[in-house]
Design a protein around this nucleic acid. Structure first.
Length: 278
DNA sequence: CTATAAACCTGCTGGC
DNA sequence: TGCCAGCAGGTTTATA
């Protein structure tokens, strides 16, 4: 589920509910989700600490606590973060509960149990350091995109899914960006022209900012911290539209397995050209 | 390196 | 109508 727009929407909805509050206890219900610490170490490290900031890096959601401690969440496919009153019944697949000093409870729930939470102390290393640039930051350029993605000897789709190329894209927004840029997902990344990289760069910024503006895409599981669905699913041009007409040219949208993922595209707007072989 | 598949889990659904 | 193999927004690891 959550790609950059969804995680950013969760971050924004969580921020006013968490910042300034102290964590008063910890209950680890699914210990395998907790990495870099035992439940006892988590208890010792975060109880009594205040949440200073709620940050996002790529698809990671980061709670910065005082004392140079951070909790780093990755929601994978079905993870949810929310703040609920203690009276609310426990969701079936609750992973972690952090009661707060205002009587509310911060909860991490995850149906498929792929999601993780890392306890980060001081400036300990984290996989976040390997992420590529933030695509919505002003500093990111089309030259950086073509430099990083253009050296991947793979399809352009696989290159965009690589979090070291650019952080935060996932299957939905990659398909949408490639359609917006009119580039076939199976094209060999090093074969794109400078003009195509520029179109793709602009398309990525466009679909991600539109995604954030409409508070993410809810297909099934995704909700923000208040339990609200997103609205971008109504604006998708290709993702999940197999067999339906392209909104640009009317051609039937195709779905094929590319880079190991279900991939949606318009065979006319996104012509394969020579469809150089990866 | 790249490519592909499997693994990690659960629950929905397309197609028979 | 009912059943169930197949598939899902993500990453990591194994294998070729």
């Amino acid at each position: 589920m959550p790609e950059l727009p969804e995680v950013e929407t969760i971050r924004r909805s969580l921020e006013p509910l968490l910042v300034g509050h102290r964590i008063t206890d910890t209950t680890v219900i699914l210990p395998k989700a907790l990495r870099g610490a035992s439940p006892e170490e988590l208890q010792k490290s975060v109880v009594g600490r205040t949440i200073l900031r709620v940050d996002r890096r790529g698809k990671y959601l980061v709670l910065r606590l005082d004392g140079s401690v951070a909790l780093v969440f990755h929601l994978r496919m079905t993870g949810r973060l929310s703040v609920k009153s203690p009276g609310e019944p426990l969701a079936k697949q609750t992973t972690l509960i952090l009661p707060l000093d205002n009587g509310e409870t911060f909860r991490f729930e995850d149906t498929r149990k792929f999601g993780t939470v890392d306890l980060l102390r001081e400036g300990a290393p984290h996989a976040m350091a390997l992420l590529g640039p933030e695509p919505l930051e002003a500093e990111w350029t089309s030259a950086d995109l073509s430099r990083r993605a253009g050296k991947k000897r793979t399809s352009v789709k696989a290159a965009l899914l690589d979090q070291g190329v650019v952080a935060g894209l996932g299957n939905i927004y990659v398909d949408e960006a490639l359609h917006h840029a009119r580039i076939h997902p199976a094209r060999f990344a090093p074969g794109l022209t400078r003009e195509e990289w520029e179109r793709l760069y602009a398309a990525i910024r466009y679909v991600l900012s539109e995604g954030v503006k409409h508070r993410g895409t809810t297909r099934r599981d995704y909700r923000d911290a208040m339990g609200r669905s997103g609205e971008f699913q109504d604006r998708l041009k290709v993702y999940g539209r197999k067999g339906m007409p392209c909104m640009s040219c009317g051609q039937t949208i195709e779905r094929r397995r590319i880079a190991g993922r279900g991939t949606h595209f318009c065979p006319v707007c996104q012509s394969a050209m020579e469809e150089d072989k990866p």
